[in-house]
Amino acid sequence: MHPVARYILQRGSLALLVVWIGLTVTFVVSRLMPFNAAELLISRLISQGVALTGEEIEAMKKQLLELYGLDKPVVEQYLVFLRNYMVTGEMGPSFAFFPTSVRDVISKALPWSLLLLIMASVVSWFIGNGIGILAALTKRRRISNILENVAIAFQPIPFAVLAISFLIFYALVLKLPIPSGGYMITGSPVEMLLYMSRRAAFPLMILVMFGWFGSFVSMKAVALKMREEDFIIYSFLQGAPTGSIRYMIFRNSILPQFTILVLGLSRVFIGSLLVEYIFNYPGIGYILQGAIANADYNLMLGVLFFATIATAVATFILDLVYPLIDPRIRYPGQG
C-alpha cells in the first residue's frame, strides 16, 4: 500500500475509534445517572408542554421511552443508542430550546463552533510560531526576552481566569458593549459564512490573544536549537544568504510544532466553550450553558457526543495536512 494511503487509513481509523469511545462514554454516563432520566424527562415534558395536544405529548413520551429503552437488556440499549446517535441522529427533544429536537439545536450551533475552534487554533498557532521564529532569529535579544517572559508568565494561568479578567477589563475599564445575537440567521451559504466570520471575530480575538503563548515558547526553543543544527551550518558555509538560512530554519522548526497544533485542539476547545458562553457566541458552549441552566440532560448528552465528533474531525483534518509538509511520511526510507 502507498505509505500516504496507509497513513490516512491509520489516522482515519483513530478518529473513528475516538468517536466510538466518545459514544460509549456518553452511553455509560447516560445510564449511570443517579435518577431515572426517562421518567424525569417525561414529567418535565408534561409540565412544559402545556401548549401541546394530548396526542403530541403521547407521541413524545413514546419516543423518549424508546430512546432510553430502559426496560430492555443493557446490550440492546447500547445498540439502540448507537443506532440513534450514529445512523438516525435521533437524540430526542431539547427542553432548553423546546420543542426543537437536540439534533436540530446542535446542528445549528456546530458550524459556528467548528469555525471558531479551527480558526482559533490555527490563527494563534501561526501568530505564536511567527513571533517565536522572529524572536529566535532577531538580534534584538532584549525585546525577544521580554516577550518570552510575558509568555512564560501568562502560560500557566488557566484560560478561564484570563477570559474573566479580560471581561472585567473590557466591560468595566473600556466600557464597551459585548456583541450578541446571530443565532437564528439564515441565508445562502456564502452570506452565512461571511456573517459567521464577522460574528466570530471578537471571540476569536480573545482566544488568540491568550492562545499564542504555548506555540511561541516552544517555537523559540526549537528554532534556537535548529540554528545550531549541522545542516543549517553547512548551508551557511555553502554560501547561503541570511534570508535563505532563516527560511530553512523556519521550515524545519515548524514540523514538530505541528504536533502541538493537533494535540492542543482539545485544550483550545475548552477555551472556546467558555468564550462562546461569556461573550454570547452562538456555538456549542452557548448551548451547553442553556442546557445546564435548564437541566436539559438530552441536550447535554448530545453536546458531549458532538464535542467528541468536532475534536475528532478537526484533528483528522489537521492530520491530513501533515504528509504535505513532511516528506518523511510520503516517502518512508531507511531512516
Partner: peptide, 15 residues
C-alpha cells in the same frame, strides 16, 4: 574554495 564537513552524512536538509 568548497568545504566538506566532518559529519557529512548528516548535513543535508531532511526536507
Amino acid at each position: 574554495i568548497s568545504y566538506i564537513p566532518q559529519n557529512s552524512m548528516n548535513v543535508l536538509n531532511p526536507l
